[in-house]
Design a protein around this nucleic acid. Structure first.
Length: 427
RNA sequence: GGAGAAAUACUCAAGUGGUGAAGAGGCUCCCCUGCUAAGGGAGUAGGUCGGGUGACCGGCGCGAGGGUUCAAAUCCCUCUUUCUCCGCCA
């Protein structure tokens, strides 16, 4: 959520920032400024009346004690009370309108996010590794998985539907090995391991910015467990970031770093027909997420480190990849700056996104009320939140199957995974 | 799923409609002290919103949201969470 004060003091810069996101928000921003002005005017009037009410109300017990008649004063205060009610409801109407607009505005891109209209203009930052040359006809991972009887989409189609998979045998073990390898690596590297709930309430989905704008992308539970709506998480970012919702953290504890495995559930609305085969785009997939809460001063350094931490596991797996800096037209709703890590996928003949590392600055923190103080008497200020996939597990398995495939249809297991899997080759 | 109890600040906790939400511990500062402990003094309802260049002024804050009332921590309604017991359950 943007700070209304920023919009108020610099509306033209905000308008330009939205245009850089391919969004013309001029009208919306003019409207919110209008609402803001009115809201503050009515706030002043209401508060003056309330101050009058408080002062007079205090007189009543004193007058009564003195044996005086308070009927006239009470009559007068009844009228005042009615006026306050009218103003209060007008005020809450304006606040609601203002909040709705604020919640639907995306974050302002960082100055270090290149201006550009779509993914074709994203800037490559670096590459690691060389795409492997194969001297035989390569197979896509869905064929490798099917032939080795480790991936089964057909049974999943019967049991559930499209865009789901059964992993079997060494496929299931490989997925589990990757999860364990990622968690062990990151937790040894200073990230506290979290296993979060896979279901969250509406407030949490609001806190990280999935709602209210992108409800169609989420799975909402049909069964009512409580009065609040429950959602399947689209990423562990949601429960882990919201762990600290409406809290004031001790500045000495920053940066707080978490790694978390979760299954992720996405409706993939609007992606019909894209990546329909294989593990690339599923309604349910596994991911290890990295989440950080940091002092605003350090958040861009922390983003670099976060990206490095995500890359490190791909390097250990020997998977060629590159890092790209997303342009203003391609970054996500809540993000100020995003690096995508893309892994080389031989069957696609190109790099495919496997991680997305973002600095949200105070956008999520303001929505979710996550603040910190360095000293007890300081004014609480918003933390910066960051997160990145560390990394997507299903896509990792796809990349391993393709990059490590052999001419006989078998797949060599990357060295670091062998202790987890117990075999060198899947055949 | 059923029955009961509870939710007040960093912690414990008083407060059954009325002027500033008690008190204690803790914490911060000061005094005393060779140092520590003990002792003495002062401060400590966070936070947030609005106004003001500012010292300040005002509004809202007693789990959340509504309601009654001139006035709500206190009365009423809905919800959430926690605890105890019963039932069910991996």
């Amino acid at each position: 959520m943007l700070d209304i004060k920023v919009i108020r003091s610099n509306p033209d810069a905000v308008k330009q920032a939205m245009r850089n996101r391919n969004m013309n928000a001029d009208q919306m921003l003019d409207e919110i400024l209008e609402i803001d002005q009115q809201r503050r005017k009515i706030t002043g009037e209401t508060e003056a009346k309330k101050a009058e009410q408080n002062a007079n109300t205090k007189q009543i017990p004193l007058l009564k004690k003195a044996g005086e008649d308070t009927t006239a004063l009470m009559e007068q205060l009844k009228n005042l009370s009615d006026e306050i009610k009218v103003l209060d409801s007008a005020l809450s109407e304006l606040e609601k309108k203002q909040m709705n607009i604020l919640l639907s505005l995306p974050n302002i891109p960082s100055p270090t996010t290149p201006v550009g209209k779509d993914d074709s203009e994203n800037v490559e930052v670096r590459r690691w590794g060389e795409p492997k040359q194969f001297d035989f006809e390569i197979k896509a991972h869905w064929d490798i998985g099917k032939d080795l009887h480790i991936l089964d989409s057909e049974t999943a189609a019967k049991v559930t539907g499209a865009r789901f998979h059964f992993y079997r045998n060494l496929g299931a073990k490989l997925e589990r090995a990757v999860i364990n390898y990622y968690l062990n690596t990151h937790s040894a590297n200073g990230y506290e391991e979290i296993l979060p709930p896979f279901i969250v309430n509406r407030s949490s989905m609001m806190g990280t910015g999935q709602l209210p704008k992108f409800e169609e992308d989420a799975f909402r539970l049909a069964t009512k467990v409580s009065e609040e709506d429950y959602f399947l998480i689209p990423t562990a970012e949601v429960p882990v970031t919201n762990m600290y919702r409406n809290e004031i953290l001790d500045g000495a504890k920053l940066p707080i770093k978490h790694c978390a495995y979760s299954a992720c559930f996405r409706a993939e609305a609007g992606s019909a027909g894209r990546d329909t085969r294989g593990l690339i785009r599923q309604h349910q997939f596994n991911k290890v997420e990295l989440v950080k809460f940091v002092d605003p001063e350090t958040s861009y350094d922390e983003l670099e480190q976060l990206t490095n931490d995500a890359e490190r596991v791909l390097q250990a797996l020997g998977l060629p990849h590159r890092v790209i800096n997303l342009v203003t037209g391609d970054i996500g709703f809540s993000s100020a700056k995003t690096y995508d890590i893309e892994v080389w996928m031989p069957s696609y003949g190109r790099y495919v996104e496997i991680s997305s590392c973002s600095n949200f600055e105070d956008f999520q923190a303001r929505r979710a009320g996550i603040r910190f103080k360095n000293h007890p008497r300081d004014k609480a200020q918003f933390v910066h939140t960051l997160n990145g996939s560390g990394v997507a597990v299903g896509r990792t398995v796809a990349a391993i199957l393709e990059n490590y495939q052999n001419t006989d249809g078998s797949v060599t297991v990357p060295e670091v995974l062998r202790p987890y899997l117990g075999v060198d080759v899947i055949r």
